[in-house]
């Protein structure tokens, strides 16, 4: 009789476990993931490789930037065989890029607004230009 009770208790516990596990499983599969927690996987297309024609990109300075130093760095990338003319308010500075096409040059700007025009002229005569406005100001407002 005692053994019978123990066996029945075990069976009862086992049944309870099965039912509880079933309930938990049901709870898990019906659980909704909030959209904010959903990971959005996007594929980023690789940076296009510049073709043989002239290209020019400027990393610095940003357009309409306000700076409190008169020396700024102008950096970017172009074709390695290009010559870079940087005109600050119409006054030119000439530099050449590295073998990888990168260039970086510190230059002095004037008070107030400065128009910086970067022109890359390739050896075959092709050219490209980018213009930026950089303002020197120490005013606090």
């Amino acid at each position: 009789m005692k053994t019978e009770k123990v066996v029945l208790s075990f069976i009862a516990i086992l049944l309870g476990l099965i039912v509880a596990a079933g309930g938990f499983y049901f709870l898990q599969i019906t659980k909704k993931t909030p959209s904010s927690q959903t990971k959005i996987v996007s594929t980023v297309s690789p940076t296009p490789t510049p073709s043989s024609s002239i290209f020019l990109t400027l990393d610095q300075p940003k357009d309409e930037e306000v700076v409190d130093s008169k020396t700024i760095t102008i950096s970017g990338k172009t074709r390695p065989d290009a010559v870079i003319a940087i005109l600050i308010n119409g006054v030119e500075n000439v530099t050449t890029p590295s073998l990888s096409g990168n260039f970086s040059i510190p230059l002095t700007i004037g008070n107030g607004q400065n128009i910086i025009e970067v022109i890359a002229v390739a050896a075959d005569g092709e050219s490209k230009s980018i213009s930026r406005t950089v303002t020197y100001s120490e005013e606090d407002f």
């Binding site: 208790s9 009862a12 309870g16 039912v19 509880a20 309930g23």
Partner: peptide, 14 residues
């Protein structure tokens, strides 16, 4: 006894 055991176990596990 069986029914009570099931209910008790299920309640505890729930």
């Amino acid at each position: 006894f069986i029914i009570l055991s099931i209910i008790l176990t299920y309640s505890v596990l729930s």
